[in-house]
Every structure is written in structure tokens, then in C-alpha cells.
Simulated scan of single mutants.
Amino acid sequence: MASQRTTPAPTTALADLLPHRPTLLSVVRRVSMSLLIAVVIPAVLFYGVFALAGIWTAIGFALAWSYGAIAWRFVTRRRASGLLYLTAIMLTGRTLLSVVADSTWLYFLQPVISDGVVALLFLLSLASARPMVARLAGDFYPMDHELAMRPRVRRLFWHLTALWAVLGLAKGSVTLWLLQSQSLETFVLVKSILMLSVNVLAAVATVALAAYVARQEGLFGPPLLHVAPELVPVPVRD
């Protein structure tokens, strides 16, 4: 005779019944950690070492941090973000050209060029089926084809790609003006504070817009539910 009893149920089976939807907090935490590792720490490290030990030492420390962060993610078997790889590639190019030319001025000129190139790539990607932001979104939220093709999500990717393209052009223009009009010490200080602030504010705006669309699409899951296994009824035969 079959009856209902309160017996333990496997928690893994219960978890499998729930769709995987990250919470807003988990997405914000992931974005914040990516920005901290790839943008904030290198900028703070660069200026701190520059003030204490000079420009070439600061250049070396910034590059070493990027590769060290990638190596640490690899050793701990965690995936490095596309932003971290992009930062490491750009820093490598800047450092190599500056060392070959023996010119610190060239090191600071290259962000103007790289910002322009990145902005151009973002603009060109707007004509493709996958704008640049769509290619990077998987670092922060589990994406599949069905999700990426939703009309609201596609519009979000398009608008965010356009936003970061315009931002790249603006950053390049301001950097060039500062480089031509200020002393090296003033340039490094102002650029470090200004660009870091702009990047953080742009990231906040990006997360806010993405969160708004994600809520409309029902893409955020509820907070983790702690269901006591002993309270789940499971049919048991006497």
C-alpha cells in the first residue's frame, strides 16, 4: 500500500527542477570583480608605483599585474574575463612599442590610438548580427542563442555597443588633449582619476540598463532557496 511520508529527498534532484537564473546581486558581483581586476587595480597600482619608483617601473608593474591575474585564474581553474585579456593585450602592445622606441610619451599616446581602434571595432560590429557587447556578455551572464536573439536583448546589446563606442572616442580625445597640454605628473594623476571614474560610471550605467531589460525578460532568479530535505514529501511504499 502506497502512502505519503515525510522522508529526505536528494537536494540535487530538487535543484535540477529549478532553472538556473543568476540573481542581480551575483551579476553585479561578477561585473564588479571583473572591473576591479582588469581596470581599477592596474590604474591604482600604476599611479602608486609611478609616484614611488618612476614611470618605467610603473609600466612594468601594470603589465605584470595583468599577466599575473590571468595566470592566477588559470591555476585556480577559473575563467579569466574577456576584459582582462583585452587589457593584457593592449598593455603588452603599449609596453613593447615604448621599450623599443625608448619613449614614455609613446606609451601614453597609444591609449589614444587603442581607444580609437576599439571604438571603431565597436561601431563596425553594430552592422553585424552580434555587436561587440553581445560577444562579451557571456562573461557576466549565462547566454544561449535563444536568449541572445530576444528583441529586447538584441536592442540592449546594440545600444550598449554604441554607448561604449562613443565613450571610447571621447576618452581618446580627452587623453590626447591632456597629453599635449599637461606635464607628465599632472597627466598621470588626472588621467588615472578621470578615466577610472568614467569607466566605473559607464559600467554602472551598463549594469543598470541591463538589469532593467533583464527584469522585463524575467532573467533574474530569486535568492537561493534553502529547502530542508526532510520537509519534502516523497512517496514511500509500506
Score class of each variant (00 low, 15 high):
L224V: 11
G54F: 07
S81V: 06
V207F: 08
I55K: 08
P151N: 08
W105E: 10
G221Q: 05
A69P: 10
N199C: 11
V174H: 02
W56E: 01
T104F: 12
V174S: 02
G218S: 02
R215M: 08
P223W: 14
M90I: 14
R155T: 08
T186E: 14
L176F: 11
A15H: 12
A69K: 00
P42G: 02
L147P: 11
A38K: 06
Q182F: 13
L178F: 14
D16M: 08
R154Q: 02
F220H: 01
A51R: 09
G221R: 03
R21E: 11
H226V: 10
A64D: 10
A51T: 12
H159K: 03
S173N: 08
P142D: 05
T76N: 10
V112W: 09
L167C: 10
A58K: 04
E146A: 15
L84S: 02
D144L: 06
L167T: 00
S173V: 12
G138E: 06
R237M: 12
V49D: 09
I89E: 01
E185C: 03
D102P: 01
T11D: 14
M90L: 15
S26Y: 03
T76I: 09
Q4K: 11
G68F: 03
F50Y: 15
T12G: 15
I113Y: 07
T92L: 11
N199H: 04
S183A: 09
L179G: 04
Y141D: 06
